[in-house]
Design a protein around this nucleic acid. Structure first.
Length: 898
RNA sequence: GCCGGGAUGGUGAAAUGGUAGACACAGGGGACUUAAAAUCCCCAGGGAAUAAAAUCCCGUGCCGGUUCGAGUCCGGCUCCCGGCACCA
């Protein structure tokens, strides 16, 4: 405890001059402030005291150690959250507030490519710098638990996680399309591809290429990821985004038999089942999970997924995605050339191009036809890239009359449009033949309605129709209810150097072999000459790394040359913190049981999709493994708002980051953190400006002067008991006492709610009230038990927000231990109640007068008092009262007739 | 297009359906000072009225509605910010 107690502190601080004190603002949180932030009182390594307090885990998203350094945006996340942590500590919790660095990733590697500086070196430099910056915040971070994801003692366990995923059948390899720059000979991340589809480094058009990649089967968890959202206290917005992203969609899978395929399987009883499982090769012996792969390439049918089976009679063609394996099977000879050309062009399009807004719909007729499962009509099969190959079955039934995309496509290629749904309020008109509809509707009617022209189903509502058509299809073996998900499996391979190597070995004899756990970590080689990949991961050309022996057969084998997505590293760091120095396991189960789920998580809303979904996935896997006893890792989440600079997000590339240092040097961290907190709703953020910071400086100085004045004042002379209601001690005036308790109540409530701005406003009010009591010029102030108690309470209340100030004052009042070990003050609900209240008098809802009444005055009395007011009498003169509404303690509303 | 969030004084912003603008900034006035800074006190939404008051009217993006009473609830818009987007 020596490093946090006040003896140490008092010895270093020069005693401030007596009244009027010179305002020593520099002391409070100035970078060389002598205040060592208090650490959690107990280590998590099993000290007995730990058990005496309930644990409380306050976590902020760790940061990426770039040359950017910390800017105001980081401060805005970290400083107020630390205030929350200090508040919880004073409430008697054993607060755990760790900090670390998410230090693998592209920027360090790009920097290395540009300058030749090894990522390990630039990263270490940046971490060193940022750690010092973080210390200046004056947060309670316990650096003994620091986590650095690029350090071998951390990524060893990231690799361990990979093996765990593999063991549980959750890691598998398959081909996937990646962004490829033919000039740099490298794979690009989506964010490295510009809006114009050019490589961000060399401006070469980016292509797409198929590569063998590792995936995590997050889709196995889609239902649990969806259900878990109901149980956590997260911003609704974030939960909504995740729900949408997971994208559960219930519908019907329908099969259309191919009519004239070259490879038609003749017999009618040999129809392939719906969505036949693909070969389960290296896939852990398990079939692919949704999103479904394109339907069976050997089959003689196209399976489509639809949520609108009620529109089945409006199908006028069927569309396959370009990557659908049936495309080349069924294309007729006449069409084959056009089809192949179209497919190769479509597949080489980058993700960016393909997703370009308002891109005109293109496609090619395959020459093949299929059979409508209910009408038996012949339906042409097209291939078009507006169908997403990786969603559903990779094929759709096109209903141009009732789907905007199909409609646009049908218009372009003059395909028939057949209406089968009309608004429910419209009368059922006699059916019109399909031909009459060609080119006729102006737009697709995509709402639900009533079916018509749909055989036995005509007249049913869409909802009924969806079920009825589904049942019918199922009964004839042409369809079944299906659920599809938007959430796709997570590609974790990166053809990059600066990441955790994938702990897998490729052996000619044994195939893919996981590196045995005891051989971890697979160290990232340091002696890399060329970070720039030449068609492969940079590690592929590091012989000493690649060449190894097979753990199973002992023959020569090769390591996997890829590294892991950095989101893997950050998906479990919160589990590592409590045991950051443990080297026999990634974490100690007992600690996880005690400390989890994380009580409060704080971070930017930009992570709603990636990090926050991946982390939930990891949490669920840890639970299934028995390591982690909870379904959700973060029980409460708050997103801080974003601090803008002249309306723009701060970023290094824009060169518009605001460095905290100049402000910090000038005003100290207490003022800066309070200023950030005072500026408005924490979740709202806003434009950075220094206007108004002087108000906080004044406030902090006012509290300081008040505290010092009382601490150094002479004792009050004894008061004659007769003149003081029988007490010889000075008492706190009733009104001051009331405001004090009100403030205790409000500040506690607001801090719990992250309403930092209003709790500071309440503290300012209280400070003003105390000034008025003790004498606003602080001249001739005397000390009394009442004043000491009041000011000490103020010090405690302000401590979370201005820790340096509070700690110094606390010691000035003679305390030897940290103010953060002082108990958070209790309020007395009785003392909060005002003796009298102002009652507003309204006439016909308009405010006309107010009066004072004893609080607790009943309705009848209040009404009588209101009616008795001169002004009210004049206004009511000669009029009839129709109604009187009385809300005790608030208003009396007199409603007149006419 | 879809899903969120927002719009309140000169500025940042407060406000469980009950006195809109708390708390601050900038501004004005005063005290202290030889003076300035710092500090302390007071004023301050807009308008009309007045010597000054009293007093009255108008005000929370726009249009309606519910209610004794709406910044707050409901319906319909406009604009701004964030996210997602050919997901059948």
């Amino acid at each position: 405890m020596g490093r946090i107690n006040g003896i140490h502190l008092g010895a270093r601080i020069q005693k401030p001059p007596s009244i009027p004190p010179k305002f020593p603002s520099q002391l409070w949180g100035r970078p060389d402030s002598p205040l060592v932030p208090p650490k959690p009182a107990d280590e998590f390594g099993g000290r007995p005291e730990r058990k005496q307090k309930p644990p409380y885990y306050v976590l902020t998203m760790f940061s990426y150690p770039s040359g950017d350094k910390l800017h105001m945006g980081h401060w805005y996340c970290y400083a107020p959250t630390d205030s929350y942590a200090r508040f919880k500590r004073m409430q008697g919790y054993e607060v755990f507030e760790p900090m670390g660095f998410d230090s693998f990733g592209l920027p360090a590697e790009n920097y290395a490519i540009k300058t030749g500086v090894h990522p390990a070196i630039s990263t270490a430099n940046n971490i060193g710098f940022m750690r010092e910056q973080l210390k200046k915040i004056g947060a309670m971070y316990d650096w003994d638990y620091e986590v650095v994801t690029s350090s071998p003692d951390y990524y060893k366990w990231t690799q361990w996680w990979f093996l765990l995923m593999y063991k549980r059948g959750l890691a598998y390899q398959k081909d996937a399309l990646v962004n490829w720059c033919p000039n740099c000979q490298t794979v690009l991340a989506n964010e490295q591809v510009g809006a114009d589809n050019l490589c961000e480094r060399c401006d070469t058009p980016v292509e797409r290429r198929k590569m063998r990649q590792w995936f995590f089967r997050i889709s196995d968890y889609n239902q649990r990821l969806l259900d878990g959202l109901e149980t956590i206290d997260w911003p609704e917005k974030t939960k909504a985004m995740q729900r949408y992203w997971i994208g559960k969609s219930e519908g019907t899978e329908i099969s259309f038999k191919i009519q004239n395929s070259k490879f038609q399987i003749p017999s009618s009883d040999s129809e392939a089942p719906l969505s036949p499982p693909i070969s389960a090769d290296e896939n852990g012996g398990r079939p692919e999970t949704p999103p479904n792969p394109p339907a069976d390439a050997r089959g003689n049918q196209v399976n489509v997924f639809t949520t609108r089976a009620d529109t089945l009679f409006g199908v006028t063609y069927v569309v396959l995605a370009p990557e659908h394996p049936l495309v080349k099977e069924i294309a007729t000879e006449e069409q084959m050339g056009a089809v192949e050309e179209y497919v190769s062009k479509a597949l080489s399009l980058s993700e960016v191009d393909r997703q370009m807004e308002d891109r005109p719909k293109t496609g090619v007729f395959t020459g093949a036809h299929c059979v409508h499962p209910l009408t038996g009509d012949s339906v042409p099969v097209w291939v078009a890239d507006y169908v997403i190959g990786s969603y559903g079955t990779g094929a759709v039934m096109a209903v141009p009359a009732h789907d905007a995309r199909d409609f646009a496509f049908a218009k372009t290629y003059r395909l028939p449009i057949k209406e089968v749904i009309k608004p429910s309020e419209a009368p059922l008109s006699p059916p019109i033949s399909a031909d009459e509809h060609v080119g006729r509707p102006e737009q697709a009617f995509t709402e639900k309605g009533v079916m018509f022209d749909s055989g036995e189903f005509s007249g049913l509502s869409s909802e009924e129709g969806i079920r009825a058509v589904g049942r019918k299809l199922e009964s004839i073996g042409k369809g079944k209810p299906t659920v599809t998900w938007h959430l796709r499996d997570w590609t974790v391979s990166r053809q990059r150097y600066w990441g955790a190597p994938i702990p897998m070995v490729h052996c000619d004899n044994c195939g893919i072999v996981p590196v045995p756990e005891e051989q971890l970590p697979v160290l990232l080689p340091q002696d890399v000459k060329e970070y720039k990949p030449k068609g492969k991961s940079p590690l592929a050309s590091v012989e000493s790394f690649i060449q190894t022996t097979c753990p199973t057969c002992g023959q020569a084998a090769e390591r996997d040359p890829d590294t892991m997505d950095t989101f893997v590293c950050s998906s479990w760091y919160y589990l590592r913190y409590p045991d950051a120095r443990l080297d026999s396991a990634p974490f100690d189960r007992e600690h996880l049981k005690e400390l989890f789920p994380v009580h409060q998580y704080v971070g930017g809303p930009e992570h709603a999709m990636g990090h926050l979904i991946y982390s939930r996935f990891f949490g669920k896997v840890a639970k299934d493994e028995g390591w982690f006893p909870y379904e959700e890792p973060f029980s409460r989440l708050i997103h801080q708002g974003i601090i803008l600079n002249k309306g723009e997000r701060m970023s290094k590339s824009k060169g518009n980051t605001v460095a905290p240092e100049p402000v910090l040097e000038r005003v100290g961290s207490d003022v800066l953190r309070c200023y950030l907190m005072f500026s408005g709703d924490y979740t709202q953020g806003g434009d950075w400006s220094e206007g108004g910071i002087s108000g906080i400086e004044r406030f902090i100085a006012r509290v300081w002067r008040l505290g010092m004045a009382i601490a150094e004042a002479p004792l009050s002379p004894p008061i004659s008991a007769d003149a003081n209601g029988g007490r010889s001690e000075e008492a706190v005036p009733r009104e001051v006492e009331r405001r004090l308790h009100q403030t205790i109540h409000a500040v506690g409530h607001d801090l719990q709610a992250f309403a930092f701005n209003t709790q500071l406003a309440r503290l300012m009010e209280l400070t003003n009230v105390i000034y008025a009591w003790v004498g606003s010029d602080l001249k001739g102030v005397t000390k009394s038990a009442a004043k000491i108690e009041t000011v000490e309470t103020l010090i405690k209340l302000i401590a979370p927000s201005a820790p340096h100030l509070a700690e110094e004052l606390w010691h000035q009042f003679g305390h030897q231990t940290t103010v953060f070990d002082a108990a958070w003050p209790d309020f007395d609900a009785e003392k909060i109640k005002a003796d009298t209240v102002t009652i507003a008098v309204q006439i016909n809802g308009k405010l006309r007068d107010t009066f004072e009444a004893l609080s607790g005055t009943d309705k009848t009395a209040l009404e009588r008092m209101a009616l008795d007011l001169d002004k009210v009498r004049t206004m009511l003169e000669g009029k009839d009262l129709a109604k009187v509404i009385v809300v005790p303690g608030k208003i009396v509303n007199l409603v007149m007739k006419g």
